[in-house]
Design a protein around this nucleic acid. Structure first.
Lengths: 167, 167
DNA sequence: GCCATCATGTAAAAGGTTACATGATTTT
DNA sequence: AAAATCATGTAACCTTTTACATGATGGC
């Protein structure tokens, strides 16, 4: 379960409310680990119960700012140093292209170009996001990794479209 | 749900038993969409009930070979042409590196080098797998994509290790 | 006053992994 | 005869998504 350690890690960098964590998962962390608020709030409750985080402040609209406890900090360090990374991937673009080869030529081209446009739109979104982050921000490295992976997928899609021959 | 369409797509290429599908998910498809037999057999039952696949043969050890029905084929085509791709990514290496910056220098290097070794082991496994596949096999393109993505992650890890300065 | 945004939660359903369970055939 | 592989399934558990639900504050 990486959600737990992603939350611990974000709180280690900066004590935050659940709402703030949600925005970070939606933005900078979206290329590596995504989570919705409906996952984050229950996880914060479990972490608090386990003594890994604690409330360190209250904001105007009933918001609570959480921070790591020493136990939370050592659990995070332990995970980073001791646990084996989970390297499983999931990549719907790859699957779709593989299956698109089953379509007749005209529909195949249609499907591939649509997927290509989709990747490019996502890349544009990541570039925009990168522009709003200070370049030395560690978050920027996340976004950069997402962009590089998308670039590989884009290139691969282009190659496969080209392999189909001229229109 | 891409599992359903991955199964339909594999069966469109070649009628197969659940066991054969399991091996394909474990091997060639492991870089894009992974599934265990405990997911595949119930999915085949649901697809059969929905009239999208049917049993077309029986093998020696009680195995059943499934193939697409016309309805299954048109559902597959519809998904490829009409549905928007799901581009969400999950990449534990990226998350771990991001969080590794919280560690003191010596433990950080230790964690990064372990993750790097892990990526390289996986790449070696994919290269071995690629060597067993005929190069024109559409499956080979899947494995190739996985390798390219891992190469990007590897390069990115190396850069981040280098940024930490000499040992 | 209205709308956007901040802020938090729960419930139901879907998707996925791990573990349990069994038995047939083939290879050594 | 034993071990490996083929072959199928279910149950429990965990993770993730989608939908439901509510209310406060700030700017227009």
């Amino acid at each position: 379960m990486s959600l737990r350690h992603a939350v611990l890690g974000l709180l280690a960098r900066q004590p935050s409310t659940g709402y703030e964590l949600t925005r970070k998962f939606d933005q900078s962390l979206r290329t590596t680990w995504h989570a919705r608020h409906s996952q984050i709030y229950p996880e914060l409750a479990r972490l608090e119960e386990a003594g890994l985080v604690e409330v360190v402040g209250h904001g105007p609209r009933g918001s609570r700012t959480f921070a790591l406890t020493p136990a939370g900090r050592s659990e995070l360090d332990r995970w980073l140093v001791e646990d084996e990374p989970d390297r499983s991937q999931r990549n719907e673009s790859g699957l779709r292209l593989f299956l698109a080869q089953l379509l007749p030529a005209d529909r195949r081209r249609q499907a591939l170009e649509r997927d290509l446009a989709h990747v490019r739109r996502e890349m544009a979104g990541l570039r925009e996001l990168a522009a709003t982050l200070p370049p030395d921000e560690p978050f920027a490295a996340q976004v950069d990794l997402g962009l590089r992976i998308d670039a590989v997928i884009e290139e691969w899609l282009v190659e496969q479209v080209a392999r189909d021959g001229p229109r």
